[in-house]
């Protein structure tokens, strides 16, 4: 098995009394898209900065692409920070090329790549525009492209979707998937669960400096009980008697007479269907609903998540 691109072992970062990151350990396997989730102040940015060796952890160890310090392998890492800025007076091409050269790409090659990337992601006609003339969304795309122009093996994006309209969010997802297609590893932090749900294979969730989940999206979803929505005469009253069902309540999806049954952990919805069939209940609706990541997130981080979820 290959060395995981990101491996954190018992990493802690303290500022005086305050523990910004408290004893976290996780790994991100090669070639995966990993979502890094957590409410504001959870310690995501601090963790990312430690992975990049911009900050040193107070204790614990970090291995990035097999190296103890990210700076040793900086040419193989791409990074987009949370707050995005550009050199206002530089052109989009020059800006992307500059960051690529800092990562060791020869100047001429960097310039060519910059032009190609801008072309590919719909900014071809803005190549020679100064960054100050770009819209916020365009500027952000330029920054993302600047962080990947040297074709890094590991890409770390801090809040890549924030501030983008839905169309550009789609483009950003495309960028991330493209990187993955080339066999690279991506870690990105976000507050928007739908993005994570759509493109991530794994998620790492942090809250208040601690790691509260690390696993695949399916594993995360399995943390919450599944639900079954039913409609039909006597369906709800019969099925809610079953051992598998925890509770029932009218469905909130707006449809008349639909009842939502929450299942016990590990319960098989097929048993409910079988039971209804045996009891000869005329089912009009029988839907198995998997919990979404948002619900898992809210469940895991509780009240802390409120602020984050509505961002």
């Amino acid at each position: 098995m290959s060395i995981p691109p990101i491996e954190l072992i018992n990493v802690t970062k303290t500022y005086g009394e305050f523990k910004a990151v408290d004893d976290i350990s996780f790994t991100v396997p090669e070639g995966t898209i990993c979502g890094f989730l957590g409410p504001n102040g959870a310690g995501k940015t601090t963790s990312i900065r430690m992975m990049l060796d911009i900050l040193r952890p107070s204790s614990g160890s970090i291995s990035i692409l097999g190296a103890p310090r990210a700076l040793d392998v900086r040419r193989r890492i791409g990074y987009l920070p949370e707050e995005k800025g550009l050199y206002k007076k530089m052109t989009a091409t020059a800006m992307i090329a500059y960051f690529a050269t800092l990562k060791g790409v020869p100047a001429r090659e960097a310039k060519t790549t910059a032009g190609q990337l801008l072309e590919k992601y719909g900014l071809g006609s803005f190549q020679n525009h100064k960054c100050e003339a770009l819209s916020k969304g365009m500027g952000q795309k330029v920054q993302v492209l600047a962080s990947i122009a040297h074709d890094p093996d590991l890409v770390i994006l801090d809040e890549p979707f924030s501030g983008l309209d839905p169309v550009n969010q789609g483009v950003m997802e495309e960028v991330i998937r493209d990187i993955r297609t080339r066999g690279k590893t991506i870690l990105f932090s976000t507050h928007v669960m739908s993005h994570a749900e759509r493109i991530c294979e794994r998620v790492v969730i942090m809250a208040a400096g601690r790691l509260i989940f690390d696993g695949t999206v399916e594993e995360a979803q399995s943390l919450l009980p599944r639900r079954v929505r039913v409609r039909g005469e006597g369906a709800a009253s019969t099925l809610e008697q079953m051992h598998e069902v925890l509770s029932s309540s009218p469905s909130t999806d707006g449809r008349e007479g639909v009842v939502e049954l929450r299942l016990r952990e590990g319960a098989d919805p097929q048993k409910l269907l079988k039971n209804a069939f045996e009891k000869k209940i005329a089912l009009e609706i029988f839907e198995v609903v998997d919990p979404n990541l948002h619900e898992v997130f809210v469940h895991l981080v509780g009240e802390d998540a409120r602020e984050a979820a509505f961002r």
Binding site: L80, P81, K103
Partner: peptide, 16 residues
Amino acid sequence: EEKSNRLIEVLLSSVT
């Protein structure tokens, strides 16, 4: 300027 527009972070991921 670099500090206020946070470019410094990107720079620091590439250089010391």
